[in-house]
Amino acid sequence: MSVENIVISVFAAGLVAFSLMFLPSLLELMYPKDAGPRVITGGIDIVNLLHVKSLEEDYRLGRVEMQKLSGALELLPNLEQFI
């Protein structure tokens, strides 16, 4: 392999590596999964949320179980409409 080819190869490899660094950014721009805007809700007490967090830790509720539970709850009808 001649010196020319080595230089070109290294240069090309560098360019590819450089482009790869921006690949995640382009991925997020083209297929955004975290585009915001970040929700600001107001009025939620921070102390209460910390309490909930420790409760989860105390009973060691798994994330999978919680997701299944919330999924099941979503399917239940809104009983308030019948009141």
């Binding site: 660094m21 921006f22 995640p24 950014s25 991925l27 997020e28 721009l29 955004p32 999964k33 975290d34 585009a35 915001g36 970040r38």
Partner: peptide, 13 residues
Amino acid sequence: LDGRKRSQWLLPL
């Protein structure tokens, strides 16, 4: 700290 994950990918930009 905001709990944002994929937005981190935009840092190089």
